[in-house]
Structure formats: structure tokens, C-alpha cells
Nucleic acid binder design. Structure first.
Lengths: 168, 168
DNA sequence: TTATACTTTCAAAATTTTTTGAAACATATT
DNA sequence: AATATGTTTCAAAAAATTTTGAAAGTATAA
């Protein structure tokens, strides 16, 4: 397989994965492209390689920057801005976990807390049928959340070697 | 807060979370509704409570059954089918992890393996810039995958107590 | 066998999400 | 100050996804 073909396949696969997980396909494709580029790329480079418009590049690169996955790079003597992705994959992984937790999971934890304050008679089967799963979700969510929080602060080798040792 | 209001809020929040994570909003809403219902519900019940069409209910319930999160319940004497959600939240969590791994993560692992066979000179910076992140992703993915596989087979208390002890 | 009760399918419609591209904006150069 | 180079915005268009609803399908009862 040619390098270019392999890059294309990877960009494609990353894009598909992104969209299946609720992240804009183009955003993850740009991320993939920058991830495997030896040099930082300009908006024009990205436009050309992915065959997308300037506005699309601009918006999605901004989102990637907001997510902390991509950085502007200024080349001395050049007026253009260039973009480079964070190459430390463990950092990338932690950053994605951190952001999704903050943006999407935390609001749900808030709502769970909120609705678990519902008034009702503990003997009412309707009430019990509601409160039980809510409490169970809260319990698992808070445990999972602690694990994720640890993960977002941990060193890769420590985290996995600890984990894999324990779970064996 | 009234029970009905709390249910609605929960259904709403679960639907939003689902769509943010790439799962059909209605599918997760139906799941939420069944999760907090004391009794199994018929297609008509779901149509009424969520104000959606019969076709929509049918398709999304089928998907939930495919995911292993919902089951048909036949009430003696009734011609209608009723539906009930798996109420053991740990099982639900494991099932979702298992299915997404199988449907969405596994194909990507295949592609990573595929593209990592790319030919190239190990001294070529372009080649190195490609192969390094791919290998790093493979390494983290395979470690994460082992953890997830363990999770899908584990008992809740064992899994989290082990985990939280270790990560402290 | 025919009628009734319910479920499934799927093309078309509605909705949501993404993308475009041109105008406005910003900054550097002549 | 005028021009050139590059970036950002956002309303409109395009594309993708979801939903509808009526017709076809299936099974039970009369």
C-alpha cells in the first residue's frame, strides 16, 4: 500500500468513527489528517486534501482548537496560519474524555440529581420503578466518573499497567 | 416535582445524551421510558407518551431489541405485544459497551492493522509521521479494548471496587 | 373462510445537521 | 491611503438522518 492510500484510508475511517460517535465527520477527518502530517498544514492545504470549502475548514479547525486537539502554528516569514495536531495520543485520548465529560456527561449528572428529588410515596410501585433505575444509574455513573477523572490526570503507563494487572 | 414531570425530564435528557453520542434520539427516549416504567408498554402506549408514529416506534423498538436492551413481553390473554427494558443498569452498561465495540470499534481496529502495513522507508519523515501515531493508537486501543472486554464480562462490584482501589 | 387485531415495511416528507461561498473583517505591505 | 493577503461569519443550499403513515403482511378468532 502507498503512503497516500494509507493516509486516505485512515482519514476516512477516523471520520466514520467520529460521526458514529456524534462528532462531525469533517472535524475528525481534519484531525486525522493533521495527526499523520509531518508538517503543519494551512487552511488551503486542508481544503485541497479533503476537498472542502474554506468556511468548513475554518469552523472545524476552530472546534478542534476549542477541544484542545489542534494548535495554530506561525511560520516565520509567512502570513498564513498553519495548524498542527497534538501528537501524543495518550494526551489526545485524555483530552477527548475530559471534554465529553464536561460538555455532555456533567449536564446529565445534574439532571439525574434533579429528578431524583421527585416527591412520592416509597410504597407506590410507579415511584419505586422510577427511583430505582435513576439511583442505579447515579451509582454507576459516579463510579465510572471517578475512573474517568483519574484517567484524565494519569500517566499512560501507570494507568494501564495498574488497570491490566488488577483486572487479570 | 411530580413523578410525571421527573419522567419527562429523564426521557428528554436521555434522548439528548443519546443523540450527542450518535444514537437515534427516539431510540434512547423509548429506552428511557421503558426503563422507568413499572409495567411493560405496548406500541400504542409508547406512541402516546412520546407523541410519535407507529412506524417510528416499531423501528426503534426493533433496534433496541437488536441491542439487547429491550425484550418482548407477552401478556396472557392479550394479542398485543408489550415491551420491557432490561432493568439491571450494570447489564445495560455492559451491553452498550459490548455492542459499540463490536459494531463500531472493531472495524476501525481492522483498518488500523491494515494501514499499518503501509510500505515505506523508515528514514522518510513522511512515513515516520504516519506510522508513529498509527502505532500509538493501536497500542492504546488494544489496552483500552482489553479493559472493556474485562468489563463486559465482570461483575459490577468486583470491577469497580478493584478499579477504585487501584487507582486511588 | 372471512373478519378482526395487530405488526411490519418503506417511499415520501419533515427535520436536523453540515457545507458552501461570498461579503465583511483584519492585518500587513507598498 | 490604497492594495494585497488572509481569516471569519453566517444566511442559504445541500446532504444526511429521522419520521410519518398508509399499504402490505401476519396471526388469531369468529
Amino acid at each position: 500500500m502507498e503512503l497516500q492510500e494509507a493516509k486516505d484510508k485512515f482519514v476516512q475511517a477516523w471520520g466514520t468513527l467520529g460521526s458514529q460517535w456524534g462528532i462531525n465527520r469533517t472535524m475528525t477527518q481534519i484531525h486525522a489528517l493533521l495527526l499523520v502530517s509531518a508538517e503543519p498544514l494551512s487552511a488551503d492545504d486542508i481544503m485541497e486534501q479533503l476537498q472542502i470549502s474554506r468556511g468548513n475548514v475554518n469552523m472545524n479547525v476552530r472546534d478542534l482548537i476549542d477541544w484542545g486537539l489542534v494548535f495554530k502554528v506561525l511560520k516565520p516569514g509567512e502570513r498564513k496560519e498553519f495548524f498542527s495536531a497534538e501528537k501524543d495520543i495518550w494526551k489526545v485520548f485524555k483530552q477527548v474524555v475530559k471534554e465529553r465529560r464536561r460538555r455532555e456527561l456533567e449536564p446529565v449528572f445534574g439532571i439525574l440529581e434533579d429528578v431524583s428529588k421527585v416527591e412520592g410515596n416509597p410504597d407506590n410501585p410507579e415511584y419505586k420503578a422510577f427511583i430505582k433505575p435513576i439511583q442505579d444509574i447515579q451509582k454507576i455513573a459516579s463510579r465510572a466518573d471517578s475512573t474517568l477523572e483519574t484517567l484524565t490526570k494519569a500517566d499512560e503507563n501507570w494507568f494501564f499497567s495498574t488497570l491490566l494487572k488488577l483486572l487479570k
